[in-house]
Simulated scan of single mutants.
Amino acid sequence: MIRFEPRGPVAVSKVISVTVAAAVAALVLAAVPMLFAGLSVFEAYGLMIKGAFGSAFAFTEMLTRATPLILTGLAAAVAFRAKLWNIGAEGQLYAGALAAVAVGTGLISGPSFVLIPAVILAGALMGGLVMLGPTLLKTRLGVDEVVTTLLLNFVILLFVQLMLEGPMKDPMGMGWPQSEPILDKAALPKLMDRMRIHWGLIIALISALGVYFLLKRTVWGFEIRAVGENASAARHAGVPVTATFIRVGLLSGALAGLAGVGEVAGLKGYLTADLSPGFGYSGIVVAMLAGLSPIGVVFAALFIASIFVGADSMSRATGVSNYLADLIVAMALLCVLVSGLFLRFKIRFVGAPHAKEASK
């Protein structure tokens, strides 16, 4: 008979070591399909490392891919800390991108120091408002936010497609469903010449530090952690549970909206329906790999981004599908979930009481 017994507080060093071990285990497990594909495992991983870190261009591409993952990872992490299960970062990303394009293509005029903050604020505000609806449904009516946030992803993407085929369609886009380009004065500056890396990375890093300070050093952060541990006990202790959920929902959606701002105002320059290859969903994996730690989110996002960018490079060199990256990410999540079980519980094997009685 197997019995799960809760552990006491777990040291941060043990959490980090288990997370690293889970990532390594995912890479080891992913070697099995590589062997079936006829690849040399060491050669394949060597090509992936070279593709993500082998040159300045490769490294900056990895950082560019990590930028939205940091923000969507933070969106998931801060919501999950309060046990508000936000699965809608993908839709909130698109909502933020849509608002950024609406403001950045001429809705208001002014110099860069006015337009850039306006674009950022519009995207964050729209992302937060999208998450506000499911949060209110949860707190007022008890509606499961997993369902509402997940379904909203598809609703928002369809609305974006509607806008790109209608009022926001670029008349100079040769018939392609895309928005007008964002004005140069509203675009996020590049961090390096002739590279795609942009100031969205700085915004993401500042956001990670801000969320860390919020959770660790403020009363609001204590309330978030208290609600996440036990909402009923927190309410009994005087914590405004409903208000805390609403604040967390707005913050989570705003962070995901910022990811959309970075993609349109810093990278692509205009909005299309295929803006995101699933950054919102990958952000959940990032948050889980990080153990919901804001600083850990940065490192987890770098790991996931290096897998994606490296797999693209390896695919071009070997002809093997880059879906291998999705396999590694999925295995990493499964390994982290299993390792989390062992962190939270001790497993004991005890004799079955009925068997002892029968022996008598």
Rank of each mutant, 00 (worst) to 15 (best):
M1L: 11
A355K: 09
T242D: 15
R65Q: 15
F213D: 03
L69Q: 10
P68N: 09
G260Y: 07
V78G: 01
I120R: 05
L69P: 07
H198S: 04
S321M: 00
L251S: 09
R7K: 14
D170Q: 06
L333F: 10
V12K: 13
S13K: 07
K190A: 10
L333N: 08
E61S: 11
D144M: 00
A22Y: 00
K346W: 08
A89D: 01
H236L: 14
D312Q: 12
P294A: 08
A287V: 00
G38V: 04
V119E: 13
G123H: 03
A52L: 03
A300H: 01
G8C: 11
L27N: 07
G280M: 09
V285E: 06
T148G: 05
L152C: 11
V264E: 03
V41R: 05
F308C: 00
A305E: 12
P171M: 02
A22M: 00
G110D: 12
V41T: 13
L137H: 06
D144E: 11
I202R: 13
G269H: 09
L201Q: 11
A311H: 01
F80V: 06
K169L: 10
P240Q: 12
S112N: 06
I120Y: 10
G175D: 09
T318H: 01
F222I: 12
D170K: 02
I246S: 11
L158T: 11
V101A: 04
I120V: 15
F4Q: 12
K216Q: 14
K169C: 00
W199N: 01
G280L: 05
V261L: 13
K83C: 01
G221V: 13
V32I: 14
V264S: 02
A76D: 01
L69S: 06
L74P: 03
V119W: 14
F299I: 05
L125K: 02
H354T: 00
L164S: 14
G210R: 00
S293Y: 01
I304W: 10
M288F: 13
D184K: 13
P117S: 14
V320P: 02
K185D: 12
Y270V: 00
V350Q: 10
V264K: 03
I328S: 04
T242N: 14
P277F: 02
G8W: 13
V261M: 12
A233C: 06
G266D: 08
M168E: 12
E165T: 08
L93R: 01
A330E: 08
A58W: 03
L136G: 11
L255H: 03
S315T: 00
R7W: 10
A233S: 13
V103W: 08
L115K: 07
G340L: 09
G96L: 03
A30H: 03
V147H: 15
R235T: 05
D312T: 07
E145K: 10
M331L: 15
V336E: 02
N86P: 07
P68V: 09
L302N: 07
I307K: 01
L129Y: 05
A265N: 08
V309F: 03
I2P: 06
